[in-house]
């Protein structure tokens, strides 16, 4: 009786109140910026402030298709993101296994250690890599001091330095979902597999690995998606030819001041990243 029309209305209102912050967040920080980018991408560049005049011009999108420079930058970014995410997974899996394998009392300190880098500035940590890898840096000093090389090795501004910086920055995002999945893995499943004749290696590949697969996919994407738009690390550690999309975006926005082109580029990146996100949602639903 009390649960009639009045009750239903009350439930709708209560749900509205609960969801309001989420909707506000999505509107202000996702929908509005995308809308602004959309409007900007069709505008005409100019010398004023802001450096564009509104209109309906497709030149920016045409440029993306015509000039392979941009497609290559997108590809380079995806390649870098995939390599980074793959390397992060390879390193994160044994780390997560180790962290999940210790006594529960040790897990929190290990987790804190994993998060420790976030307590120092991101740029500061990249500066440390530069200090390590430059010609007069610690690594080259050590190599020459031990007589392994005569000339300083070119370590900085290479693919390797860039990847090291990327993996260093994004590794925790790959470890966390794997760690969570592995500590929730029922030890009885592993014992059952052993009981049925599985040796440790077989047990790992037939039980541990497949059951942590959704978490591995989550870790991969948590690294892949932000890494695809990364521009600071390639800029500071990478070789000049590593023209990833993030760097190109930065140049178009702040050096060429072609905001419509930059906006179109940003939208293209967004469209590309929606695919793996959808793929991940399907994977998560399937398990």
């Amino acid at each position: 009786m009390g649960d009639g029309i009045g009750g239903a209305a009350f439930r709708v209102i209560r749900r509205g109140i609960l969801l309001a912050p989420l909707w506000a967040w999505l509107l202000m920080l996702v929908a509005a910026p995308v809308l602004i980018l959309g409007v900007m991408a069709f505008a005409t560049p100019s010398d004023g402030v802001p450096p564009f005049t509104l209109g309906l011009r497709f030149a920016a999108f045409a440029m993306l298709v015509e000039d392979f420079y941009y497609a290559e930058a997108l590809l380079a970014a995806l390649r870098l993101a995939a390599t980074t995410a793959g390397l992060c997974l390879l390193i994160a899996y044994p780390m997560a296994l180790g962290m999940a394998g210790v006594r529960p009392a040790w897990r929190l300190p290990l987790l804190a250690l994993l998060m420790l880098p976030f307590w120092t500035g991101f740029l500061l940590r990249l500066g440390a890599w530069i200090g390590l890898l430059r010609d007069e840096g610690l690594v080259n000093h050590l190599l020459r001091g031990l007589g392994i090389t005569d000339e300083p090795l070119a370590l900085l501004y290479t693919e390797g330095a860039m990847l090291a910086g990327m993996v260093h920055a994004y590794l925790p995002f790959a470890v966390l979902p794997l760690f969570t999945a592995l500590i929730r893995l029922d030890p009885a499943l592993l014992e059952a597999a052993a009981d049925l004749g599985a040796r440790p290696a077989r047990l790992f590949f037939s039980v541990t690995l497949p059951l942590a697969l959704p978490a591995a996919a989550a870790g991969f994407l948590l690294v892949f998606i932000p890494a695809a738009g990364e521009f600071v690390i390639p800029e500071l550690l990478g070789p000049p030819e590593a023209q990833v999309i993030g760097r190109v975006l930065w140049q178009e926005f702040f050096q060429n001041r072609d905001w419509p082109l930059a906006a179109a580029l940003a939208l293209a990146l967004l469209a590309l990243l929606i695919l793996p996100i959808r793929w991940f949602q399907r994977l998560g639903a399937g398990v």
Partner: peptide
């Protein structure tokens, strides 16, 4: 070691492999 013992165990929680169907669970051993 457990995998080489001619003894099998049925677990209280059953410990069925959630990523395999019934036939694959039984086929595992």
């Amino acid at each position: 070691p457990p995998w080489a013992r001619p003894i099998n165990m049925m677990f209280q929680s059953y410990a069925l492999f959630p990523h395999m169907n019934v036939a694959d669970n039984i086929a595992y051993g």
